[in-house]
Design a protein around this nucleic acid. Sequence first.
DNA 1: AACTAACCGAGACGGTACGTCACGTCTTTCG
DNA 2: CGAAAGACGTGACGTACCGTCTCGGTTAGTT
Lengths: 196, 196, 196, 196
Amino acid sequence: MQEPKPNVGRPRDGQIDGAIVRATRELLVERGYAKLTVDAVAARAGIGKAAIYRRFATKQEMIFAATVHDMQEEPPPDSGSLRGDLAAVCRTIAAQLTSAPPDVLHGLLADIHADTGLGARFHGTFIEREQYVLGTVLDRAVARGEIASRPDIAMVHAQLIGPVFFWLLILGGDRERVATLTATVAESVASTLVKD
Amino acid sequence: MQEPKPNVGRPRDGQIDGAIVRATRELLVERGYAKLTVDAVAARAGIGKAAIYRRFATKQEMIFAATVHDMQEEPPPDSGSLRGDLAAVCRTIAAQLTSAPPDVLHGLLADIHADTGLGARFHGTFIEREQYVLGTVLDRAVARGEIASRPDIAMVHAQLIGPVFFWLLILGGDRERVATLTATVAESVASTLVKD
Amino acid sequence: MQEPKPNVGRPRDGQIDGAIVRATRELLVERGYAKLTVDAVAARAGIGKAAIYRRFATKQEMIFAATVHDMQEEPPPDSGSLRGDLAAVCRTIAAQLTSAPPDVLHGLLADIHADTGLGARFHGTFIEREQYVLGTVLDRAVARGEIASRPDIAMVHAQLIGPVFFWLLILGGDRERVATLTATVAESVASTLVKD
Amino acid sequence: MQEPKPNVGRPRDGQIDGAIVRATRELLVERGYAKLTVDAVAARAGIGKAAIYRRFATKQEMIFAATVHDMQEEPPPDSGSLRGDLAAVCRTIAAQLTSAPPDVLHGLLADIHADTGLGARFHGTFIEREQYVLGTVLDRAVARGEIASRPDIAMVHAQLIGPVFFWLLILGGDRERVATLTATVAESVASTLVKD
DNA sequence: AACTAACCGAGACGGTACGTCACGTCTTTCG
DNA sequence: CGAAAGACGTGACGTACCGTCTCGGTTAGTT
């Protein structure tokens, strides 16, 4: 979201922000990511295209903002074990991955990685946040004495989230069985870490 | 690839098929997925656009065909243990995932999931093949007595490939450390299965 | 010319209308009717193709508008005789026929008659106007007592303009001798009418 | 029509010539000049495109040959007066002009004048032949003593044929009234010439 | 109360790529 | 070697979408 100049001129209409998000989400569901056009969003929201581009630099930024909730994920409450904490983290992220249609995630990921700026923001907003949460959880395990030292976070991240991600986005797997997968993976990663 | 009518008229020039693939791959590397144009492919290949559209219904089909090699993956030689076999499968697939620039994979996945037909072909060509290979490997483990019965293949698939996939495509992780990740994951999945 | 909605949105840039006409005329002279392309017109005019297709439904409409000046021919001043009036009318029309390269006239006539809508507009713009002028001139002759009643206008039209048209477009005749032909025809038609 | 090499190889199938002409004429009537395609002619005739291009250098040549009958117009029998002879010539040519749909004539004329070679052939086949016939008729009038010397043929040609041409092709006039127009014009031209 | 600066909807703008179509040529198999 | 079938390079077509810009008009805060 681009910032308006403060305290001069007419202020932005706050209803428009909501209307853009709503129209974008509706059209993503109705037509899919590839067939979403800015003109259609503007028409559906009953606004002009300029109102969109005053707020977002590109179509991708708009979709990014409309799709991705504000994601201020916090470390889960201490469950008493690394395994339980990892399962909690994994469940939260899995829930986010199922909050948008799969083709939207694919399209967005492609566009994000095609654009340096957006890619950096995505990384900062999601990846780093998730790894911060993971780090907290792992530090707890160290404090508990479950593991000797904090392992490489990115590797743990990949082992924990990768299977869920793949299941949902590549295999197009059943969303109900994600819970099972999540539990299995958390167990598996925890025991691998503890074993070392 | 659209099929020509057999034995009537001038046959398709086989060199053109190769030239399209070559030009597409070169341009994907040089310009990236988002900036690939059909006109540029035709120009680079020294052919007309019509020759492309005679073979592929859309630009995406063309890229799919040019990117996705004929992928007739076979089960790896028996390594003597489930863990060794899983590691071999995982290494092979990881090698394929690193054979194209990452933005190409993202773009292709997005386009594949935006188009039902292409999605089905992708599933048939890759997912099913990988799961066939995995099934073979798991059956060996059953025969060996490592595991009691063949588990759900898709779940194993997700656990095995998901981390590598996530590491490479989402985290943009170091390609050299994929080997470490692969080994860790294979070990982890194997021991989870054997334990049961 | 397609009409813009009035008083909403950005108004059409009037300079573009002129630039399209100018570029079209230049390119018709430089390359001829058959080799005129819409892309070339847009490039020459320094505009996008969309700006052309926003104004004209087809390439032919564009050429029609660019070629056919607004043609608000008025009856010539009363020369005192039917013969003089007819000669004046004929000279005016002959001048219009020589204002564009001959291949443009051929191409335009062909396209006009290939498209019902354009044909109707051509008829309304040109034929009816010319016949209105002819009707005025003939009415004067009736008032003068040169002829008893107003004859069939279309027949007179054909007799008067046909020879000049044929001379210029079919015979590819010398443009300097059109004056002689015009005078001869006007004399001939006038005496045929007066004789009756 | 391009000549085959004589006495070598397989002779051309004479039925094909007829089939091309028939298919061309049918499609001209059904779809009009602008929408006639060589592929459609070949398909309708049940032949290959190569068989067409073996006979005609261009699409226009094909249409020219298919539309225009072999036109070996001879001077009409002596009617005893210039006026009668001119009327006969005019009637013959008018009949030819009505033998094809009007849009075909427009299209063909445009293409003829866009191509030097075809334009020359058209001129030789039609214009010169018509002027030869006119010359013969005018010579008769000189011999008869109706006129003193042979006037400029092209000018007479334009005066005589122009009105009919304009009536049929530009005005889209009623074909039944062409007879009246023909008679009027012949009378008018004859008396203009005799008067001098 | 007037001024001013940024807002608003609507839609035109330059640019770029798409997928289609037709031309006239070329290349195969068959007779 | 002619013919049917159809692939080939070329090049224009008309459409669609992007992100920008320009209208007339609206809506605050500042003079």
